[in-house]
Simulated assay, not measured.
Amino acid sequence: MSRTALITGAGRRFGYELAHALLDEGYTVYAHYNTSKGGVEELEKRGAIPIQADFSNNAEIAAMVKQLQQSIESLDILVNNASCFFNNDTIDDDDDKLDAVYQVHAIAPYRLITGLQLALAAAEDGLVINITDIYVERPSVDYIAYCSAKAALANMTLSFAKVLAPEIRVNAIQPGPILFLPEHQDEYRRSVLSETPLTVEGGLEPMIETVKFFRDNRFLTGESIKVDGGRALKI
């Protein structure tokens, strides 16, 4: 029987590449997106099943959960990867963005884990992987809401690991300088890498390898792995 995965934020960057990697292994992939449909269209050509929801909207989260409950008998992997990233000034000027930060990083993962618990438990080894951040332990003062929302997801990882064992394992990945954005200037890139002991941009493959590590090591739950080239040592 084909294994099944749900990846949120699958339209770009890590979510997109992870979806390709799991499709390569024969998974049935449900590829969630909000507005980044371009990448999901490419995944759909390979057989991925697109599913749209705006995680800032509770009704859309509920509708997505209901749709998945009706479509999936068992779910092998749930990757809570969807993200939004706003600094303090943006948050302070826009209440909707403040709400979105907590909705996307905390409320939606909570609803997905609880709503899909039966499907995860029905899998041979149901696994949840939450994508948190190296800043959950040493937060950036410029991104207070973002860091605290990711910290909520990190704590949620521990709580669900306790509650859902032994049927479901719950772990987290804390990424660091994996892949710079196009708008990042050279000076910013050099500054970040100078604070990273391994002094390189990690790329997405180490993240994908860590997902597979969590999947293949069935004695891990409640664990969080930093994939950051050592940057957390210096922030």
Rank of each mutant, 00 (worst) to 15 (best):
Q67W: 02
T132L: 09
E205F: 02
A31Y: 02
N87T: 05
S140W: 05
V192P: 01
S194P: 04
N81F: 05
R231P: 02
A145P: 07
A106C: 13
E137P: 01
Q67H: 12
P175T: 10
Y33W: 08
K162D: 12
Y16G: 01
P166A: 05
D142K: 13
V163M: 10
R12G: 07
R46D: 12
A154L: 14
D92W: 11
I235S: 06
I91R: 03
P109C: 00
G202E: 01
T35I: 15
L127S: 03
N88F: 04
I134Q: 01
M156Q: 14
Y16S: 07
K150I: 00
L22A: 04
H105F: 07
D186A: 11
L43K: 06
E41W: 05
E201C: 00
A100E: 05
E124V: 15
A149S: 15
A145T: 14
T196C: 12
A63D: 09
G203E: 08
P175M: 05
P50C: 14
V128W: 08
N155A: 15
I134N: 00
F214M: 05
D99V: 07
T35D: 15
A53D: 04
V200R: 07
E223T: 13
E42N: 11
P139N: 08
L68T: 00
G47D: 13
A121R: 11
V192F: 03
I91W: 06
R218N: 10
A108Y: 07
N217L: 12
A48R: 00
L198D: 10
D76Y: 00
